[in-house]
């Protein structure tokens, strides 16, 4: 019988796994709206994780970070994207290249790769168990699968934002003590990126009356 991790570690790991499962759910979500909501939920889970660490490890800066990331990633970003969707009047996501079960199988494959790669590093952290780091790597990789296999701008943008969530989990594991100014700079950057994504998505929709990326194949060679 292998020793169980401590209760704190177990709970933290389960929360991290929840982030990964949300990523998988995004892979499946047929409605763009539900995808955005899943992203909001995922961000909420990440925020909760930050609060848990702040409370148990007494890192007060993380509270500030949690509040900021809540405002930005749970309220603002999903709000912006949902508004874009309302304006664009599009519900269904673009058809993905593969069926759902095949996508899930591919995503399972890449997450296995991520988990084994990071797991073999034997990283030690005071803030969180390292399983969370391996799971974060898996989140990043599954986000890539989402972006590659989904053919519409909203899914791809959400994929990028959720990739950032994965990186956030990783940073909570290994860099919980990262100076606040740096963390805030990261978040600010995300905000700027969201605005730019939004602008370009609007331009794209304005030009082609669709959110699909299937007609984005003029430039090649």
């Amino acid at each position: 019988m292998s020793p169980a991790p401590s209760t704190y570690a177990g709970v933290a790991d389960v929360v991290a796994v929840l982030v990964l499962l949300t990523e998988f759910a995004m892979l499946r979500a047929p409605l763009l709206r539900s995808q955005v909501r899943l992203y909001a939920f995922q961000s909420l889970v990440v925020t909760v994780l930050a609060v848990v660490i702040a409370a148990t490890r007494h890192i007060d800066e993380l509270y500030v970070l949690a509040v900021l990331s809540f405002v930005l990633k749970v309220v603002l970003v999903p709000g912006l994207v949902l508004r874009l969707l309302r304006d664009a009047d599009v519900d269904l996501a673009g058809s993905s290249v593969l069926g759902v079960p095949s996508m899930i199988m591919i995503a399972i494959g890449v997450s296995a790769f991520g988990i084994f790669t990071v797991g073999s590093l034997h990283v030690h952290s005071n803030a969180l168990p390292t399983t969370a780091l391996a799971v974060a790597a898996a989140v990043v990789l599954v986000a890539f699968v989402l972006i590659i296999l989904r053919a519409d701008v909203v899914s791809q943008a959400i994929g990028f934002f959720s990739l950032e969530n994965g990186v956030s989990v990783a940073s909570l594991v290994v860099a919980a003590g990262l100076p606040l100014v740096v963390e805030v700079a990261f978040l600010f950057d995300l905000l700027v990126a969201v605005v730019v994504f939004g602008v370009i998505m609007r331009v794209h929709h304005g030009r082609s009356q669709t959110l699909s990326t299937e007609d984005l194949d003029r430039l090649k060679g």
Binding site: F144, I147, V153, Q156, A157, F160, L163, A193, V196, F197, I200, M201, V203, H204, R207, S208, T213, L216, R218, L219
Partner: peptide, 15 residues
């Protein structure tokens, strides 16, 4: 062309 290029650019570079 510019829209397509900028979308590819912002997405890939952001990733």
């Amino acid at each position: 062309g510019a829209t397509e290029a900028s979308w590819k650019y912002v997405l890939i570079a952001s990733l």
